[in-house]
Amino acid sequence: MQKSLVIYPDKCTGCLQCELACSYQAEGVFNPAKSRIKVFNFHDQGRFVPYTCTQCDEAWCLHACPVDAITVDMTNGAKVVSDDVCVGCKVCTIACPFGTVNYNQATGKVIKCDLCGGDPECVKACPTDAIAYMDADLTGLEKMRAWAAKTDAALQAGA
Protein backbone atom coordinates (compact mmCIF):
# COMPACT_ATOMS: atom_id res chain seq x y z
CA MET A 1 0.00 0.00 0.00
CA GLN A 2 1.31 3.42 -0.82
CA LYS A 3 1.61 5.62 2.23
CA SER A 4 2.80 9.18 2.42
CA LEU A 5 3.73 11.97 4.74
CA VAL A 6 1.02 14.55 5.03
CA ILE A 7 1.95 17.98 6.20
CA TYR A 8 -0.30 20.55 7.87
CA PRO A 9 1.69 23.79 7.73
CA ASP A 10 -0.86 25.60 9.88
CA LYS A 11 0.03 23.34 12.81
CA CYS A 12 3.80 23.82 12.45
CA THR A 13 5.47 25.99 15.08
CA GLY A 14 8.94 25.85 13.53
CA CYS A 15 10.48 23.92 16.44
CA LEU A 16 12.62 21.83 14.03
CA GLN A 17 12.19 18.62 16.08
CA CYS A 18 11.44 16.83 12.79
CA GLU A 19 14.75 17.95 11.27
CA LEU A 20 16.69 16.80 14.34
CA ALA A 21 14.92 13.44 14.47
CA CYS A 22 15.46 12.92 10.74
CA SER A 23 19.14 13.75 10.77
CA TYR A 24 19.70 11.50 13.79
CA GLN A 25 17.87 8.60 12.18
CA ALA A 26 19.58 9.03 8.81
CA GLU A 27 23.06 10.19 9.75
CA GLY A 28 23.46 9.56 13.47
CA VAL A 29 23.88 13.26 14.25
CA PHE A 30 21.56 16.01 15.46
CA ASN A 31 22.13 18.37 12.57
CA PRO A 32 19.26 20.01 10.68
CA ALA A 33 21.56 20.51 7.68
CA LYS A 34 21.54 16.73 7.21
CA SER A 35 17.79 16.35 7.52
CA ARG A 36 15.70 15.02 4.63
CA ILE A 37 12.74 17.09 5.82
CA LYS A 38 13.18 20.84 5.83
CA VAL A 39 11.11 23.49 7.57
CA PHE A 40 10.84 26.72 5.60
CA ASN A 41 10.37 29.90 7.54
CA PHE A 42 8.34 32.64 5.91
CA HIS A 43 9.22 35.45 8.32
CA ASP A 44 7.00 38.08 6.76
CA GLN A 45 3.91 35.90 7.19
CA GLY A 46 4.93 34.25 10.46
CA ARG A 47 4.46 30.84 8.84
CA PHE A 48 6.45 27.63 8.83
CA VAL A 49 6.14 25.02 6.09
CA PRO A 50 7.75 21.58 6.54
CA TYR A 51 8.63 20.08 3.18
CA THR A 52 9.99 16.76 1.97
CA CYS A 53 9.65 14.12 -0.76
CA THR A 54 6.07 13.09 -1.60
CA GLN A 55 7.27 9.71 -2.98
CA CYS A 56 5.56 10.77 -6.20
CA ASP A 57 4.37 8.27 -8.80
CA GLU A 58 6.36 9.97 -11.54
CA ALA A 59 9.56 9.17 -9.62
CA TRP A 60 11.68 11.56 -11.65
CA CYS A 61 14.73 10.67 -9.57
CA LEU A 62 14.32 6.95 -10.19
CA HIS A 63 13.86 7.31 -13.94
CA ALA A 64 16.75 9.74 -14.32
CA CYS A 65 19.24 7.56 -12.45
CA PRO A 66 21.72 6.10 -14.93
CA VAL A 67 22.81 3.23 -12.71
CA ASP A 68 19.56 1.91 -11.16
CA ALA A 69 20.48 3.17 -7.69
CA ILE A 70 16.94 4.29 -6.78
CA THR A 71 14.30 1.63 -6.25
CA VAL A 72 10.76 1.42 -4.91
CA ASP A 73 10.18 -0.07 -1.46
CA MET A 74 7.21 -2.28 -2.28
CA THR A 75 5.86 -2.14 1.28
CA ASN A 76 5.13 1.60 1.25
CA GLY A 77 6.00 3.04 -2.15
CA ALA A 78 9.07 4.94 -0.92
CA LYS A 79 11.75 5.72 -3.48
CA VAL A 80 14.97 4.61 -1.82
CA VAL A 81 18.58 5.42 -2.73
CA SER A 82 21.01 2.52 -2.49
CA ASP A 83 24.31 3.95 -1.27
CA ASP A 84 26.22 0.95 -2.62
CA VAL A 85 25.02 1.66 -6.15
CA CYS A 86 24.82 5.47 -6.26
CA VAL A 87 27.87 6.91 -8.05
CA GLY A 88 27.11 10.49 -7.02
CA CYS A 89 26.45 11.83 -10.52
CA LYS A 90 23.66 14.12 -9.17
CA VAL A 91 21.39 13.83 -12.21
CA CYS A 92 18.50 12.97 -9.88
CA THR A 93 19.07 16.22 -7.96
CA ILE A 94 18.31 18.29 -11.06
CA ALA A 95 15.66 15.89 -12.38
CA CYS A 96 13.44 16.04 -9.25
CA PRO A 97 11.21 19.08 -9.83
CA PHE A 98 10.34 19.18 -6.13
CA GLY A 99 13.96 19.69 -5.10
CA THR A 100 13.83 16.90 -2.55
CA VAL A 101 16.94 14.97 -3.59
CA ASN A 102 20.15 16.57 -2.34
CA TYR A 103 23.81 15.78 -2.86
CA ASN A 104 25.84 15.09 0.26
CA GLN A 105 29.40 16.19 -0.47
CA ALA A 106 30.72 14.43 2.63
CA THR A 107 29.70 10.99 1.37
CA GLY A 108 29.62 11.61 -2.39
CA LYS A 109 26.05 10.18 -2.51
CA VAL A 110 22.61 11.66 -2.85
CA ILE A 111 20.13 11.69 0.01
CA LYS A 112 16.34 11.76 0.11
CA CYS A 113 13.45 10.80 2.38
CA ASP A 114 12.94 7.01 2.52
CA LEU A 115 10.06 7.08 5.02
CA CYS A 116 12.43 5.46 7.57
CA GLY A 117 11.42 2.02 6.30
CA GLY A 118 7.77 2.68 7.16
CA ASP A 119 8.08 4.30 10.60
CA PRO A 120 8.94 7.95 9.95
CA GLU A 121 10.84 9.60 12.81
CA CYS A 122 9.67 13.10 11.86
CA VAL A 123 6.06 12.10 12.52
CA LYS A 124 6.92 10.75 15.97
CA ALA A 125 9.01 13.81 16.80
CA CYS A 126 6.43 16.43 15.86
CA PRO A 127 4.78 17.75 19.06
CA THR A 128 1.86 19.42 17.24
CA ASP A 129 0.82 16.70 14.76
CA ALA A 130 1.84 18.86 11.81
CA ILE A 131 3.21 15.75 10.07
CA ALA A 132 1.14 12.59 9.67
CA TYR A 133 1.84 9.29 7.96
CA MET A 134 -1.16 7.72 6.29
CA ASP A 135 -2.52 5.92 3.26
CA ALA A 136 -1.87 7.96 0.17
CA ASP A 137 -5.52 7.69 -0.86
CA LEU A 138 -6.69 9.47 2.27
CA THR A 139 -4.27 12.32 2.00
CA GLY A 140 -3.91 15.52 0.09
CA LEU A 141 -1.57 13.66 -2.20
CA GLU A 142 -3.89 14.26 -5.12
CA LYS A 143 -3.19 17.96 -5.09
CA MET A 144 0.54 17.31 -5.07
CA ARG A 145 0.00 14.96 -7.99
CA ALA A 146 -1.85 17.64 -9.90
CA TRP A 147 1.06 19.93 -9.24
CA ALA A 148 3.49 17.24 -10.40
CA ALA A 149 1.50 16.73 -13.58
CA LYS A 150 2.23 20.30 -14.56
CA THR A 151 5.85 19.25 -14.89
CA ASP A 152 5.16 15.85 -16.42
CA ALA A 153 7.06 15.14 -19.58
CA ALA A 154 4.20 13.34 -21.26
CA LEU A 155 0.61 14.34 -21.70
CA GLN A 156 -1.30 11.15 -22.25
CA ALA A 157 -4.51 11.29 -24.16
CA GLY A 158 -7.27 8.81 -23.39
CA ALA A 159 -7.09 6.22 -20.65
Binding site: K38, K90, C96, P97, F98, G99, T100, N102, Q105, T151
Partner: peptide, 9 residues
Protein backbone atom coordinates in the same frame (compact mmCIF):
# COMPACT_ATOMS: atom_id res chain seq x y z
CA UNK B 1 23.57 21.39 -3.77
CA UNK B 2 20.40 21.93 -1.72
CA UNK B 3 17.02 21.67 -3.47
CA UNK B 4 18.53 22.48 -6.86
CA UNK B 5 15.79 20.50 -8.65
CA UNK B 6 13.11 23.07 -7.84
CA UNK B 7 14.63 25.24 -10.53
CA UNK B 8 13.38 22.64 -12.97
CA UNK B 9 10.02 22.60 -11.18
Amino acid sequence: TEHVGVIRG
